[in-house]
Design a protein around this nucleic acid. Structure first.
Length: 507
DNA sequence: TTTTGAGTTGTTCGA
DNA sequence: GTCGAACAACTCAAA
């Protein structure tokens, strides 16, 4: 070993599975020193939220693509399994590395893990550096004027638009210097990330191409063909007018910076503005998760801990399998099961039905999405479910209960989406497609639909479900009122009283 | 400090 | 059929 060559740098890949606009990799390459890229499959670190089945499937493809890119650049990816800290320590020993670079993660468990690793390795004089690859703005950078984190999206969005613009993307390294002796690596296949018995991933393979190159292609196709119609079109599940970048973003195959600047480089329309706003929603979700780490588990509005959910395994199962009897909801859950993804508009409708009409705890829905979505993302998933349930910081009004029939008629008027995913009712005319239970006998017969046999009767009637949900929300208010003195709260004269209480708690 | 306006994504009812 | 108001009460963020 020539004594002249400086020690290598380990680049630890996590949710940044790309070579372009990868600040940690970029910085390591810029030193001119040898680079040892590693990915660690650390089930323990993910303990509170182990990768779901669909995520594992995607991860395999993402890693395969990254392996190929890094090999081409000259520094093959090392795959290791085990406790992250132990694996890194071993790798430092094996390679003689004196530096470790990574891009930051923002899940509470990951923050803890990384903090510990940084402390331990710095004590051993390892140069540990972390970078921002995943967010346009660090969660601590966007603050209200009183230096508190934003809890409401609109002012957050405004603050983001007024902030200094996010950095422009970094180029991928032209080549990397490999370490003299390549350390051992697991075989990706041996991780068994993809299902075999049974192989349920056929629909995922048909719908998706994981990897950095595919992400870039998806973005340009979106910008070329769809973004112009995005403002309205994104709400129509039967048309392919959303970006479908969410899984690529989650695994870091493309950076939000790249998407941001590529979008700004196009003609600015209401479509581009709406799309950029969605990216800011992603930022907001990470911001919330960072500042409120209980977000995935507990309602941010404490009174919701007393919400009278009616957990029911059979109802949950019917929802999961797309057998609720509400066509747009069932279509969504079947799309999810088949492809690992659900159109955003339908996510809201399906989630609302579960949480409101069926009174199932939002955590049950979040858990199902976590397991089945290829874009399962702790920040986005938790934020969105809390929003639908009305227990997040930026809560929906309690009376906002999606009506799956009206939503279906409004956003899937031609029925393309429902017919694709609920073929057993595909022959119903548009008029009845979203409410087969109201269809005349003859219409059902002509369409070959036998309610209760070929397609379910709704598990809960719409009106009863809505009323039950509204009543349940009312109990929260009543419970609240009992805590307080007789004068009706909410009236003007009750306001100062609350403020006093809050002030006294703070002091 | 106090006040004020506003809050992603909806539905229903009655004029 | 279309349209506006009502649907809670509360907290957030900025003036």
């Amino acid at each position: 070993m020539p004594a002249t060559s400086p020690p290598p740098i380990i680049v630890w890949f996590r949710q940044d599975l790309r070579v372009a606009d990868n600040p940690a990799l970029h910085a390591a390459a810029a030193t001119g020193r040898a680079v040892a890229p590693v990915y660690i499959l650390d089930n323990a670190a993910d303990a509170p939220w182990p990768l779901g089945g669909a995520s594992r499937w995607w991860l395999h493809g993402a890693l395969a693509a990254l392996q190929a890119s890094l090999a081409k650049l000259g520094a093959p990816l090392i795959l290791r399994q085990g406790d992250s800290a132990n694996v890194l320590a071993a790798l430092i020993k094996e390679t003689g590395a004196d530096a470790l670079y990574w891009n930051r993660c923002y899940e509470p468990a990951a923050i803890e893990r990384d903090k510990d690793i940084k402390t331990a390795l710095k004590a051993r004089h390892i140069d540990v550096q972390s970078f921002n690859s995943a967010l346009l703005f660090e969660p601590w950078e966007i603050r209200t004027q009183s230096e508190t984190p934003f809890k409401v999206f609109t002012p957050f969005h405004k603050a983001v638009l007024n902030a200094p613009p996010p950095r422009t993307p970094l180029a991928a390294p032209k080549k990397l210097v490999s370490i003299p002796q390549q350390p051992a690596s697991d075989a990706l296949e041996a991780w068994n990330l993809r299902p075999t018995k049974p192989d349920w991933a056929g629909g995922l393979r048909a719908a998706w191409s994981p990897g950095e190159a595919a992400a870039k292609k998806r973005l340009s196709q979106f910008l070329d063909n769809a973004v112009a119609h995005y403002a309205k079109g994104r709400d129509v599940p039967g048309e392919a007018l959303t970006s479908r970048l969410s899984p690529h973003l989650h695994f870091g195959e493309i950076s939000p910076h790249h998407i941001w600047h590529a979008t700004l480089a196009r003609e600015q329309t209401s479509g581009t503005a709406t799309f950029l706003k969605e990216l800011v929603w992603r930022e907001f979700a990470y911001h919330l998760l960072y500042h409120f780490p209980v977000l995935p588990d507990e309602p941010l509005r404490p009174e919701f801990k007393a919400f009278p959910w009616k957990a029911d395994a059979k109802l949950l199962r019917a929802w999961q399998r797309g057998l609720t009897g509400y066509p747009i909801v069932d279509a969504g859950l079947r799309e999810l099961w088949a492809t690992g993804w659900m159109h955003n508009r339908v996510r809201m409708i399906a989630a609302s039905l579960l949480v409101k009409h069926l009174l199932q705890p939002w955590q049950a829905g979040a858990a199902w999405f976590w397991d089945t979505l290829v874009d399962a993302d702790l920040a986005n998933n938790s934020t969105s479910w809390q929003w639908v349930a009305g227990c997040g910081t930026d809560a929906a009004p309690y009376f906002r209960v999606f009506n799956p029939v009206l939503q279906g008629l409004k956003f899937d008027a031609g029925g393309a989406y429902v017919r694709r995913w609920v073929p057993e009712i595909a022959r119903l005319p548009d008029e009845w497609l979203h409410k087969p239970w109201d269809a005349p006998e003859g219409v059902l017969k002509d369409a070959g639909v036998m309610l209760g046999r070929t397609y379910p009767i709704p598990v809960v009637s719409l009106n009863a479900g809505r009323d039950r949900a509204l009543a349940a929300f009312k109990t929260l208010r009543v419970a609240d009122e009992t805590d307080m003195s007789p004068p009706r709260p909410g009236s003007r004269e009750a306001r100062p009283k609350r403020k006093l209480q809050r002030g006294s708690r703070a002091s």
